[in-house]
Amino acid sequence: MAEALLELEGLRVEFRGPRGISRVLDGVSLRVAAGERVAVVGETGCGKSLTVLAILGLLPQGARFRGRLRLLGREVPAAEWGRSKRPLPGVAMVFQQPMSSLNPVFTVGDQLRAVARTLPHLRALPAPRLRARLLEVLSAVQLADGDRILRSYPFQLSGGMRQRILIALALLKEPKLLIADEPGTALDVTLQAEILGLLDHLVRTQQLALLHITHNLGVARATTDRVYVMYAGSVVEEAAAEQLFSSPLHPYTAGLMRSVPRLDGSGFGEGIDGTLPSYLEVDLGCRFRQRCTFRDSRCEEKPELSSPSPERRVACHHWELVRAAAALEERV
């Protein structure tokens, strides 16, 4: 395995609220190697965005967190992530809302320059060289006619161009790791395909690693090497993309995949019964068991992540059964 760029270990996040303490992340660990494309998938409320916010130091007020973060082999002290409000060096974020993330009253050039002025490696650059650098990142995100774009206001640009500018903003920071939270969910499929293609291109040409947060399994499959599946504040499965989508081992992953309508018209399954459990309840068992068809008495005990094969991990007592059931279904 390649050198680890980012390693998150045992992240736990809690909120104290009117009804008590809710533990919304419980022992999330993930790892991104240099140049690797990793996806975190899960449905609304699973904690995938919160995980990213913790890495970026943007946890909301009142959140309590615990865990270890290593960046490029160096341990990051707790004061420098979680709620630090300061970005980690070498990590840049691409935000999801191309409309609201750009200020409508400044030109694109002004906004790029404002960001550049906060960056140590660009701060001292004389104006012409900074301009050259700005044109460079614009061309990196495949925006032709950079001069015109620098002079444009956001409303003069299309949604796709704005999304590209947000990526350019992230590239200015010369990151090793690009974090993208649902890029393209606000966009249409053709545009989404283009943006995902661009991210892929950047990973290859700029030696970037990509941590991709998405609820869309198809998007995760198309753009990543490895996938983490989250449910109710924990990672329930981790595998190489192709492995995960050809044979899911966690009942939740399997249920999700059955819920997705297929382009070949083969229909889709029944969905998953029930709803996400409350984060307020202290639960010693498997968080998925109330919705699980494989449930038995062993599920009253929380399953640890186990390794069915060297590159895979799954948090389920019954993963062998799940695999057998899937194989059976395949034959029928």
Binding site: R19, G45, Q96
Partner: peptide, 18 residues
């Protein structure tokens, strides 16, 4: 970005957030 999950189901036991 998805919002911080709101606890559901605890409504009966806990007090009104307001």
């Amino acid at each position: 970005m998805t919002a911080v999950p709101t606890p559901r189901g605890a409504r009966r036991t806990g007090e009104h957030p307001g």
